[in-house]
């Protein structure tokens, strides 16, 4: 019994233990209820290894999986007024923002980064559903505009991953005005002759769908993502009919001609790389 095994080892063990053991080593798939070990799930990009269900992921994870070797540079987004309407429901809006910022370590519901995808320069904007449901207020709108300007500056395509419940109600009509503002952003990219690609992930609804999202040169969705304008519950109450099987899911939209393709998460980066390569004839000729 030495001092080393008696005292130091256990202490190190508890220190390491605290850090290394996550709360949930085993994660249950919300679709098929099967359990998966967390490393196995992460390796499969948070897609269930049993049923193929695509779980919701953070914006940061998204960026890591999209760029070559997971390397990218995030840009700082322009600041906007924090609480333009002094909005208060059961909570004050600034308190909701503060909570979301603490929880997510993000400023708002959008992150923008640049790097390469399949060797092609690209600007990628990712909506963070974990931040107040990915809702679009002035910060998100301003971020999409900034991403568009960066794409033009870098002569690179713009790819936006959408994940949003719609407009940020707490910013009232200011959030509504993000619809025309983000539509202008798409025009900045297109007018420069650059591809604008949207990747719709679960869920993409409301004013976010009805603005920049639906103006992609190419529109891709992950499998079984909820995509629509009006909420399913509102529709059900309005038309008093049972909604059809698979209504407002990626495959339903694909069948109705609204998307170009439904692509598994594990194949997304390769698909984006191929699309950019095919679209950017000019880039190759210049090089």
């Amino acid at each position: 019994m030495s001092w080393l095994t008696e005292f130091v080892r256990p202490k190190i063990r508890t220190l390491l233990g605290r850090r290394e053991v996550p709360d949930n080593l085993w994660i249950q798939c919300p679709a098929c209820q099967q359990m998966m070990f967390h490393t196995e799930l992460d390796k499969n990009l948070k897609v269930c290894t049993h049923c193929g269900h695509h779980m919701r992921v953070t914006a940061q994870q998204r960026l890591g999986w999209t760029f070559d070797e997971g390397r990218f540079t995030r840009i700082e987004l322009p600041k906007v007024p924090n609480d333009p309407l002094r909005f208060r429901d059961t909570k004050r809006y600034p308190d909701r923002l503060k909570e979301a910022r603490e929880k997510t370590q993000l400023d708002d519901a959008l992150v923008v980064a640049h790097g390469t995808i399949g060797g092609h320069r690209a600007v990628v904007a990712v909506m963070a559903f974990e931040f107040i449901g990915g809702s679009m207020g002035a910060a998100v709108g301003e971020g999409i505009v900034a991403a568009a300007k960066l794409a033009v500056l870098q002569d690179a395509p713009l790819i936006v991953f959408t994940a949003s419940g719609g407009a940020r109600m707490m910013e009232g009509a200011i959030s509504l005005m993000q619809m025309p503002r983000t539509v202008i952003a798409t025009r900045l990219v297109k007018d420069a002759g650059l591809p604008f690609i949207t990747v719709l992930t679960d869920p993409t609804t409301g004013g976010v769908t009805a603005s920049f999202t639906m103006l992609g040169d190419i529109q891709i969705a992950e499998p079984a993502a909820e995509i629509g304008f009006a909420g399913a519950r509102v529709i059900e109450q309005t038309v008093r009919e049972k909604l059809p099987e698979g209504f407002q899911r990626s495959e339903y939209l694909l069948g109705h001609g609204i998307l170009d393709m439904v692509v598994k998460r594990t194949e997304l980066a390769a698909t984006l790389a191929r699309l950019i390569g095919l679209l950017r004839v000019k880039e190759r000729e210049a090089a």
Partner: peptide, 10 residues
């Protein structure tokens, strides 16, 4: 929705 409400508005 089936005929692309969101796209039409955009």
């Amino acid at each position: 929705e089936a005929r692309g409400q969101a796209e039409a508005i955009a």
